[in-house]
């Protein structure tokens, strides 16, 4: 209780009780201590000379980055097309794979909460925990570099995202609408088609467009690990320290990301 009586009997109001205050302070202190400790551990091997030298390095790189090498842009159209395909085809593949996973993971549509649901949830968690770049790294090692590895990497990463949001949407549906369709004597598939799908369709469309937008971003850098797209050019330019080309690539990536963000916002807006 923040209100107590003082010795003279006058009520005293404090923002927090002294105990709450104590806990709060100890908490903050612990956080600061943890931060300092982490900082120490993290920087134990840092070569500070490089850090002091960083402003000069930054100035140096900046001066090499400008002006951008505009002529290089003609070499970027084809990788850009690949990037777009990686994102779009990857998203499509992910949709095909994640719809069943979502229905298996949703509490109200899964055939078995004890066996199937945990497996579906594990698929979702694994896919979500591992970044597209790591998937790319693995897939390039396994099936060789190229656009195909990129598509699979994007798809594997997106399954978790789409399935998770979709199964949450499925769990939130209005069951009376499903019950009503059931009561007409509809079969299981018909109940799905008439009772469940109309309810989740807007969420589903929004989720996939949103994910496509994220995938465009991620597919621009997949080339850094060899999985195709404009990132390959980025990697190549950095390797030869052609900073003018790097700037051009950055600007192209920036433009692409802005356009895809705009498209995705437009589409989502029209769907609601």
């Amino acid at each position: 209780m923040p209100i107590s009586k003082s010795e003279t009997g006058v009520p005293v109001w404090q923002h927090r009780t002294s105990k709450a205050n104590l806990i709060l302070w100890v908490g903050w202190l612990a956080l600061v201590a943890l931060f300092v400790f982490c900082w120490q551990v993290m920087t134990q091997d840092t070569i500070w000379y490089f850090v002091y030298d960083a402003p000069r390095q930054a100035a140096d790189i900046t001066s090499r980055m400008f002006p951008p090498k505009w002529g290089y842009i003609s070499e970027l159209w084809w990788p850009l097309w690949d990037t777009l395909n990686i994102a779009t085809l990857g998203t499509l593949l992910a949709i095909i794979l994640s719809v069943p996973v979502a229905f298996l993971a949703a509490r109200n549509t899964t055939p078995s909460t004890r066996f199937v649901r945990p497996v579906a949830l594990f698929v979702i968690v694994s896919s979500r925990s591992i970044n597209a770049l790591i998937w790319g790294l693995l897939l390039v090692a396994v099936i060789g570099p190229g656009v195909f590895a990129g598509i699979i990497a994007i798809a594997l990463r997106s399954i978790g995202f789409i399935s998770k949001l979709l199964y949450e949407a499925i769990e939130e549906i209005d069951t009376t609408q499903v019950e009503a369709i059931n009561a007409t004597g509809a079969s299981g598939l018909q109940t799905l088609d008439y009772g469940i799908v109309p309810q989740i369709l807007p969420a589903f469309a929004g989720i996939t467009v949103f994910r496509w937008d994220i995938n465009i971003r991620e597919s621009t850098v997949l080339g850094l690990v060899g999985a195709g797209g404009i990132g390959l050019k980025l990697q190549a330019s950095i390797n030869v320290l052609a900073w003018g080309q790097v700037t051009t690539i950055f600007l192209v990536i920036l433009g692409t990301v802005l356009v895809s963000e705009w498209v995705s916002a437009k589409v989502r807006h029209s769907l609601i």
Binding site: T176, A180, G185
Partner: peptide, 15 residues
Amino acid sequence: RRRIGMIFQEYALVE
């Protein structure tokens, strides 16, 4: 069930 029609509280239409 086809032979039994049901009308619901809160309508239960597929909105």
